[in-house]
Design a protein around this nucleic acid. Structure first.
Ligand SMILES: [Zn+2]
Ligand SMILES: [Zn+2]
Ligand SMILES: [Zn+2]
Ligand SMILES: [Zn+2]
Lengths: 149, 149
DNA sequence: GTAAACTCTGTAGTAACTATAGAGTCAAGA
DNA sequence: TCTTGACTCTATAGTTACTACAGAGTTTAC
């Protein structure tokens, strides 16, 4: 099986397969005389494993870690559980962030009806820095919520 | 005000400020004789606007678009509303994806108690490709759910 | 024999920064 | 005045997980 067929059968692109090889997620296969990669069906399972992990948003480095664990089958699997737990926490916190963001966007959207001109746009107005409205006692330390991923 | 002070006052890092300048989000300021950037307080407002937008996860290119809209204040602000609406949809869909992911991870986590060895780990077992269990009628087209951002 | 289809390596691009390296500028103290 | 330290400059590389070439070589079919 050459790389093109493997790509079709695995659902990974040719470049992705070569990339995984370069990153050490799958081992370098034999080559034909003409230097073409030659795969057997075992690599299909490895790619499937990787795809399953990627579908859970595990990073390649985490997957690499899991692969290396599989190569020492007698060690305890605690590390696996921890990785999933850590991941769960990250996903949960990301969801919370996005929900806050969603609320902010919803609220912002309400600030403007249609058909105004840009300088009267309620949304743009809201995004501008708050004018220092009160002459006595400045308190302006609020930084807008928001997170990245 | 030199760039260091601007960084402190705006909450953006020095490199970020220079990056925004390179990307055309803020205009290039005057320079001192020694070639140091010299800012006035107007740029503080621009940076604040950008930060507010970034907190809503608007991309730099979207922000650039908003900035350019601000420079033609008489055009209708429809485009602003559309941008926010599009954004809302993207955030909502991302949240849904993550909630699915979260469910999958939770379920996966249940597959393994502690203190097993790697080759008996329920989690790793679950991540491996499903063995073609039934001898009659192969049906294995299920691709695992999951999304990226 | 030749054209099409395939594969190879290596490089650059993506988003929004961050982190250097190596050089120049400026203010204050000895 | 010299020097030290803090600051700034540009340019470049790194981050993540790929994708998309360019330019070359290989294989297959007609
Ligand atoms: Zn993780
Ligand atoms: Zn509007
Ligand atoms: Zn957007
Ligand atoms: Zn386990």
């Amino acid at each position: 099986m050459k790389i093109g067929e493997l790509a079709k059968r695995s659902g990974c692109s040719i470049q992705t397969i070569r990339y995984y090889e370069k990153e050490g997620l799958i081992s370098a296969p034999e080559r034909t005389e003409g230097n073409f990669r030659l795969y057997n069906s075992v690599v299909l399972e490895k790619l499937s494993f990787i795809k399953n992990c990627r579908a859970l948003d595990l990073t390649l480095s985490e997957i690499k870690h899991l692969v290396s664990l599989q190569n020492s089958p007698e060690t305890p699997c605690e590390a696996v559980n921890e990785m999933i737990d850590t991941h769960l926490l990250a996903v949960e916190s990301r969801i919370e962030d996005l929900q806050k963001l969603h609320g902010n966007l919803k609220q912002l959207r309400l600030k403007c009806g249609n058909a105004r001109s840009v300088d009267q746009c309620g949304i743009l107005g809201e995004l501008l820095p708050k004018p220092e409205r009160s002459p006595s006692g400045t308190r302006n330390e609020r930084s807008p919520s928001g997170t990245r991923k």
